[in-house]
């Protein structure tokens, strides 16, 4: 039905992550997990998919002894998100 919609974005959790990241300069894993109310395992898998597609960049570091995973949307991700929203608008008009 929605064949023009990017399948990578047309998924609840990945779309939620991309919507958060488009509004932020950067967000860490815990923040994304809290806001999307997802499980760590599920979120981790979806972040990897977005990262492999080049839609987000993932930076791993440490805050003291605590591991920190920081995510940022990439230019490719912004373009994909914009295209996705434009396609949605098209569906809503028809």
């Amino acid at each position: 039905m929605f064949k023009d919609l990017d399948p990578l974005l047309h998924s609840q959790l990945r779309l939620a992550v991309m919507s958060l990241l488009i509004s932020l300069d950067a967000a860490d894993f815990t923040f994304l997990k809290e806001k999307t109310k997802s499980t760590a395992g599920n979120l981790s898998v979806q972040l990897d998919k977005l990262s492999e597609a080049g839609y987000i960049s993932i930076e791993k570091s440490f805050n003291g002894k605590k591991p920190l995973t920081t995510c940022r949307i990439t230019k490719k991700g912004i373009k994909a998100f914009e295209d996705y929203v434009n396609s949605l608008k098209g569906y809503l008009k028809t």
Binding site: S11, L20, K37, N42, L92
Partner: peptide, 26 residues
């Protein structure tokens, strides 16, 4: 939150985007 095989309607997608953007406010 679900991931695969969850059918989102265009309106649900837009609602989800709006809700997440709202949550990201500083």
């Amino acid at each position: 939150m679900k991931t695969e095989n969850d059918t989102l309607s265009p309106q649900q997608s837009l609602d989800l985007i709006a809700s997440m953007i709202n949550q990201a406010k500083g």
